[in-house]
Design a protein around this nucleic acid. Structure first.
Lengths: 152, 152
DNA sequence: AATATTTATATCGTGCACGATTCAAATATA
DNA sequence: TATATTTGAATCGTGCACGATATAAATATT
């Protein structure tokens, strides 16, 4: 592995780390109108698609463990966005069901993706970031694939 | 904007958010051997490249504000990886200088990028994630560019 | 049936992130 | 030169993330 390829690690890992935070920040103005954080919004996206899931099932979809989701969902319960109740068939499971308030929020959330899209579009800096990320990622995939072929 | 394009938002934002966390997790086993977190490692990467920067300058490179960096750097001072001192020419600035221990850590950090690379390579699941991310990202860039051209 | 193991949540501790605010030093302006 | 504004750090409060651990319910094993 040569010098340049070694640098690719940081060239991809750091940008992903940064862009992830930039995206969360870009969502903020639209989400705080609804009183939501980005992770809370993700939970709602899952529940709007498929209500009455266990915490575990939500975690599978979001790749989050219960030590993150448990308190997060309790905060959302306090906000009266959802209800928690133990499953009757398995007392270990906690089923999450949207309240009317949680369901109604969906309407207000509909314009968010387009707004976010336009935000990223308006800020050319960010398009630059994405383009940069795209090139690096393509480069990385090439090297990864190449290396996997070498092993055969 | 059609339904599918709207979904692209979540198709790109969520994967970036997830992959970012996966990458940080992938670094963990290698970094904790050095007693470092990923953000601390990033600070060292910056300082190994260019010592004696102010907190602000480090923040510019990492896109992090002082309310994140200040306590993080104080923790690194406690670990005796770096020294903090006020600049004489501008008493507001805090200059960060690596200690010998901080400099020496560089040697131990050299194999990390390759190890990480191999980890991602070994876990085919993750290569799948990257490929997925790559396609979505390319798709997104196409749409963004197209939309920007429309405005002209 | 009694015991061991697994599974679904929850809790605890630590370390980011980040908006808001504070404070002092530096710089700009009247 | 006095005052206003800007700038660099630091602090505070809140909310994630996540490893480690605890607990109780469900399931497997003996």
């Amino acid at each position: 592995m040569n010098e340049q390829q070694l640098k690719l690690n940081n060239q991809i890992c750091f940008p992903i780390y940064s862009v992830s935070r930039l995206i969360t920040k870009a969502y903020k103005p639209f989400l705080e109108g609804l009183g939501l954080t980005y992770p809370q919004y993700l939970v709602l996206l899952v529940l709007w698609e498929n209500d009455n899931l266990s915490i575990n099932q939500i975690g599978e979809k979001l790749l989050l463990n219960t030590n993150t989701l448990s308190p997060l969902i309790k905060r959302m319960e306090k906000m009266e966005l959802l209800d928690r109740r133990r499953s009757k068939s398995d007392e270990r499971s906690v089923l999450i069901e949207l309240t009317d308030k949680g369901k109604e929020l969906r309407e207000n959330a509909i314009p968010i993706p387009e707004k976010l899209f336009n935000t990223l579009l308006a800020e050319n800096v960010k398009l630059g970031d994405i383009l940069f990320l795209k090139d690096i990622l393509n480069n990385w995939v090439d090297i990864l694939s190449e290396k996997q072929n070498d092993r055969k």
